[in-house]
Design a protein around this nucleic acid. Structure first.
Lengths: 344, 344
DNA sequence: CCCGCGAAGTTATACGTACAACGTGAGGCG
DNA sequence: CGCCTCACGTTGTACGTATAACTTCGCGGG
């Protein structure tokens, strides 16, 4: 009557159905399809089982398998926001490695993690084998259930990841590269436009900048903004019109912020890069979409996700891989140019 | 020796442990915690059970529950690429609704869906209750396992979604709005820069443009490009320098393409919007990051995801909600301006 | 006075799988 | 010739949960 194609509701065949069709016991089916039949089942029998499984369109019931094995081959990936292209790329890498090992990935966008005081793992309907937690929400996460599941932290504060394996991008090196690039161009008054996120991330970046500029006579000022174009434009506009010498270069924590800085410059009648150099971070699609194209620090986001998942799987296997920060590189494009230089 | 905090390997408490602690049977625990204890269990007993569960930190084993109930409260979301901000937003909406109904969402990025001839569902380690498939890869997906799971199609070709419920954005209306906007500005020679994706999507958009321009004396040409800034720039540059009258406006299938078109204009010495009007689609972060800000068609991406998941859940409940296309709206910004007009 | 009935639990079972432990012939060897 | 071994399976059980079917007991009505 309903006319749907789900009328028949043909129940999915089980391993027992396959066994019946192949004329063997259910255990034999499990052995053959589980790949552990070496020397336990004769080849002709094994082939008969495989054929029966194929004919019936048999697919093992994951819930039953998970229950039996006590693990799910599923990992949770916690990110601040998937709409941030960087994290989408991290997910891509993590999911690729996971698939290679027969693992699935469930996503948890962190913003809600702390707010509703709900258990973050409730939303992950699958039971989980482990957690891959990206920095920004990891403090909250670690506090909530840090030691209940194997955990790998992505780029997080060592102070908050006690005992958990960590995978890092060399963020500090990225900031240094940007700073040195601007120094080489003759800039001596630099604004750091920072993303308004976790304090640890902020500290790492600012400290790296400070040490890079130390002893060069360059001046460093700081402004913070939420991770959005408008917020960045507003903050940059304020910082660039503040009393005192106007910075000739802006180092941004993110390409999105850099885009905002460029808009601020335009509003103030400054030309990028001639009047103001701007550097971004992440090398998102955005970086080459704007005019001029952004000089930015390219992060191996997918490799980051891959290595994170590799590490998690290693931890699950009882191994402990040595943490080695992933290298970053500076991509020089059109948003940076010669500054006032040392001629002053 | 290993020194890890997983040494003790304390096995998670089961409902039986809770039962023992509360001095009741396992069945009673299940009744109380399952919420079906009305009139079956006295309040003091129920409270004792809840207290015991809390003390032990009991969490039900999802694998066992899934096995018992035969459903998983997990849906698969198939998207072409998560790095596309639009789909990240769709996911956000879908996940929100899913969470509200106690559902989880597993993601499947489609690109690989057809290539390796692997079963796409293998990568979803959880068993699934249903599938939410976004347009672009849905043909392949539907072909592979269309009728094995309840399916809801997002913005897909009706011809390929036989029997499956569908949720649509009013893409055609979006194209009409853009076309009418340009017509009103006096443009009579329009280039359609199309995304090189599914042919159905392309047809819908082109047909909408054609009908909107029909009878206005306006000329429509078409170029296609992969969904990337560089590809779009190249294609636009070629189309704008082709023989014949140069278009005075470009309607793009996506903001990313629009950014590429703007870059092409700049290379050709054309000013946007004075010499060339450009419209985008989707209203991504990108749209306000570039200069000038893009006039674009804003899509309710999150609502789209929400409605998709709502529909899937309705289908799982045996209901059949009427499909109603989600409205889109034109956001006029700085990338469009008066064209040559009817003065000619 | 006894029967029935509702309240408050309990016992038993099934979901589908993986694997430990147990047959069971046939052939080799002392 | 009897026993051991090996190749090839099979039988049985447990994973943790939800729920149908059953028990037990107190109490009110006929």
């Amino acid at each position: 009557m309903a006319g749907s194609r789900h009328d028949t509701a043909a129940p999915r065949p089980t391993s027992r159905d396959v066994a019946r069709a192949a004329g063997v016991s259910q255990a034999t089916v499990s052995l053959v399809l589980g790949g552990k039949w070496q020397g336990r089942v004769a080849e002709p029998t094994a082939e008969r089982v495989r054929a029966a499984a194929r004919d019936l369109g048999y697919r093992p019931n994951l819930a039953a398998r998970n229950l039996r094995l006590g693990r799910t081959r599923t990992a949770l990936l916690v990110v601040p926001a998937l709409t941030n292209e960087f994290f989408a790329r991290v997910h891509t890498g993590a999911a690729r490695v996971a698939a290679r090992h027969g693992f699935g990935v469930v996503l948890y966008p962190a913003p809600d993690v702390t707010a509703p005081a709900r258990d973050p793992f409730d939303s992950a309907r699958a039971s989980l084998d482990g957690v891959l937690a990206s920095s920004m929400a990891s403090e909250a996460l670690a506090a909530i259930r840090g030691d209940e599941l194997p955990l790998v932290m992505l780029d997080s504060d060592p102070a908050h990841s006690l005992g958990a394996a960590t995978v890092n991008l060399d963020i500090a090196q990225g900031m240094r590269l940007a700073a040195e690039h601007l120094l080489a161009l003759g800039h001596r008054d630099v604004l750091h436009l920072a993303a308004d996120i976790s304090s640890w991330t902020f500290d790492v970046r600012r400290d790296a900048l400070r040490s890079a500029l130390h002893g060069t006579g360059a001046r460093l000022t700081t402004a913070r903004a939420a991770l959005a174009v408008d917020a960045a434009r507003t903050a940059a506009e304020a910082a660039l019109t503040a009393s005192g010498a106007r910075p000739t270069a802006v180092i941004c924590d993110d390409d999105v912020l850099a885009a905002g800085a460029c808009k601020a410059a335009r509003r103030l009648g400054l030309h990028v890069p001639d009047d103001l150099s701007v550097t971004g971070f992440d090398d998102l699609t955005l970086a080459t979409a704007v005019e001029p194209e952004l000089t930015t620090v390219a992060l191996p986001a997918e490799r980051f996700g891959e290595q994170g998942m590799d590490t998690l799987i290693a931890v699950l296997d009882g191994r402990t891989p040595e943490p080695r920060p992933l290298p970053v590189r500076l991509v020089v494009r059109g948003s940076t140019a010669q500054g006032p230089g040392p001629r002053r």
